[in-house]
C-alpha cells in the first residue's frame, strides 16, 4: 500500500459533483448527479472505515432518494422554473456553512492516533468486549453499550414500515 491521499482526490470529485448539481437546470440530470454524489461519499466512508455509514449512504442516498426524486419528477416536471437569484437564502446558507466549518476546527485531525476516542474510548470498548465475551467489538457497542438505542431504532423502523404498509395497502374491494 502506497501512501496516497485518495481521500483528497475523492473530496475534490465530490466538490465538482456538488457544483454541477447546483449549476444544472434539468432536474432529471441533477438527480443523476446527486446519485453520483451519494456513491462518492459512500466510497469515502468506506475508505474511512465507517462501512455501516457507507452502506446507509449508498442505500438511502443512491438508491431510495433517486427513486423518490424520480417519482416526484414524474408528478411535477423535470425543468426548474426560471427565477432571479436571491441574496438572502444564499447569505443564510453561507453563514450556516461557515458555522459548521468553524465547529470542525476544534475536532481532532483525521487519522490522529492521539485523539480522545482512540486513547480512552476504544481501549475501554475492547476491554469490555472481552469481559462480556462477545467476539465482535461493533456488536458489543451496538447490542450492549448502546442496547436501548438500538432497541429504539428498530422500534422506529418497525413503526415506519407498518405505517407505509398501512398507507399503501388497499384491499381488492377499495381498489375498484
Amino acid at each position: 500500500m502506497m501512501d496516497v491521499p485518495i481521500e483528497a482526490l475523492l473530496f475534490f470529485l465530490l466538490l465538482v459533483t456538488a457544483l454541477t448539481v447546483a449549476r444544472l437546470r434539468d432536474l432529471y440530470a441533477a438527480s443523476m448527479m446527486t446519485a453520483i454524489f451519494s456513491l462518492l461519499s459512500a466510497g469515502l466512508f468506506v475508505l474511512m472505515d465507517a462501512v455501516d455509514v457507507a452502506f446507509t449512504e449508498a442505500a438511502v442516498g443512491a438508491g431510495v432518494a433517486t427513486v423518490l426524486s424520480l417519482g416526484a419528477l414524474s408528478l411535477t416536471g423535470s425543468r426548474e422554473a426560471k427565477k432571479r437569484a436571491q441574496v438572502f437564502p444564499f447569505v443564510v446558507v453561507a453563514l450556516t456553512g461557515a458555522a459548521l466549518i468553524y465547529g470542525t476546527l476544534d475536532m481532532p485531525h483525521y487519522g490522529d492516533a492521539n485523539a480522545v476516542i482512540h486513547s480512552h474510548l476504544a481501549p475501554d470498548f475492547i476491554e469490555g468486549s472481552a469481559e462480556l465475551e462477545i467476539p465482535n467489538v461493533v456488536t458489543t457497542v451496538l447490542a450492549s453499550y448502546r442496547g436501548y438505542d438500538t432497541f429504539g431504532e428498530s422500534f422506529v423502523v418497525f413503526t415506519a414500515v407498518l405505517g407505509v404498509i398501512l398507507m399503501l395497502y388497499r384491499s381488492k374491494k377499495d381498489a375498484s
Partner: peptide, 9 residues
C-alpha cells in the same frame, strides 16, 4: 448523465 451515474455505481 444517467449513463455516468450507472457506470459510477
Amino acid at each position: 448523465r444517467l449513463l455516468a451515474a450507472n457506470v459510477f455505481g
